[in-house]
Design a protein around this nucleic acid. Sequence first.
DNA 1: ACAAAAGTGTTTGGAGTACACCCATGA
DNA 2: TCATGGGTGTACTCCAAACACTTTTGT
Lengths: 236, 236
Amino acid sequence: MPNSTLYNPHVSVDCVVFGFDGEKLKVLLIERSINEQNELYNDKKLPGSIILNDENLDDAASRVLNELTGLKNIYLSQYKSFGNPNRTNNPRDILWLENTTHLKIGRIVTVAYVALIKIDRKIVFNTEDTSANWYDVNEINNMQLAFDHNQIIENGLQHIRHRLDVEPHLLFELLPRKFTISQLRILHDVVHQTRSDVRNFQKKVAQMSNLVMLDEVEEGVPHRAARLYKYKKKAP
Amino acid sequence: MPNSTLYNPHVSVDCVVFGFDGEKLKVLLIERSINEQNELYNDKKLPGSIILNDENLDDAASRVLNELTGLKNIYLSQYKSFGNPNRTNNPRDILWLENTTHLKIGRIVTVAYVALIKIDRKIVFNTEDTSANWYDVNEINNMQLAFDHNQIIENGLQHIRHRLDVEPHLLFELLPRKFTISQLRILHDVVHQTRSDVRNFQKKVAQMSNLVMLDEVEEGVPHRAARLYKYKKKAP
DNA sequence: ACAAAAGTGTTTGGAGTACACCCATGA
DNA sequence: TCATGGGTGTACTCCAAACACTTTTGT
């Protein structure tokens, strides 16, 4: 329950949290309920918060993610700020802001972050006042999100695609600790919107020195089990 | 002279303006004078401003550049926001802020932009209350700038290096309208901190379809004059 | 004539791309 | 035994990098 001496109501952070379920790229959204003339209106929003008065932007983003998932040390990267004076003009959004913050809110500039998390981590998404779910990045175009969150996600997606291109090791932030080369390839293809050749991909992977083959194979698949690998930081 | 109903004193924009003088990469800084206990203290700062209440972030950055240079249509790109709660804590900076804005200023989150301009444009940098000069990017490490502007420039430099790598056509924003291949190569090398081979560079340039050779050569050089080229947008 | 930079081709190695078959496993 | 994906090698193309000499012009 924010209070005005603790919080800075002029600046917020929003996090576009990406996950990979083995097939699709997903984004984590918070379910939002607004009581509008005695009708409950439901939609979704990004996890975010106005910042504390004495808080760094990066710290605010970490706090939001930690409050939501209980996790620390998540990959987080600031990528863009959104400050259109009209972004907080929708009456529904104003109502929701005032109900949840109990502050008088004017214009808010928000600083957007992308986060990458391993979707297999068992995360408590449903606390007493928050419930969150994963959504396909491609479905989001057809959803009407709070504020300018559609645009924030769209930009976040572009950003992270580019980022994963330049720094491929970040792909491992999205995979389980142990993974198969197929999983890595499918993730790579989903991110880059390509369809890579299996043999060429193996070849490229073979020259990654920080990929270590384990003495284990996957389990519970109805076909030949694939070898498991893990990612090891620090190139030699 | 800002007034509190017009300006939003919680958010500002700062512009890291890059230019190229034929040899070095330069950044445009504003000379700042502070009357501190009857001693004049001089240093430098980035061109910037708190935003207007009803102004987009991009518009605020354009406004700052236009007020400074008189130019429009400058290449501008937002790259990072800085919101350390201590960034506006230096007493000297507080004094300067209050003298120039006549507002009570607390914490300011600033949204940083990089801009690219052709240094040969004759620009009025010395209006009645502002004077600006170009500084080598490498000298800036040894200067003590206002606020966290050293860090903002450092990040801006990284950003623009990467950006010019990904979108090489942006190099032409830094060159005069007519330029030689040498100028282009030297700029390329300054940006990428490389030393490219003259012949290989010519070869690469030869396949750029939007580079057109003019029927002119450079003048006033004490050696064989080089051919001039211009950049033409829109690939065929 | 000399100093200074302009301009110009060829060779080589490495990376990316295209392509097809046998293998191991669970049902 | 069959269905499903796992795992493997070769040939070709293209791009990047290395490398040195002649030409033009001003002084």
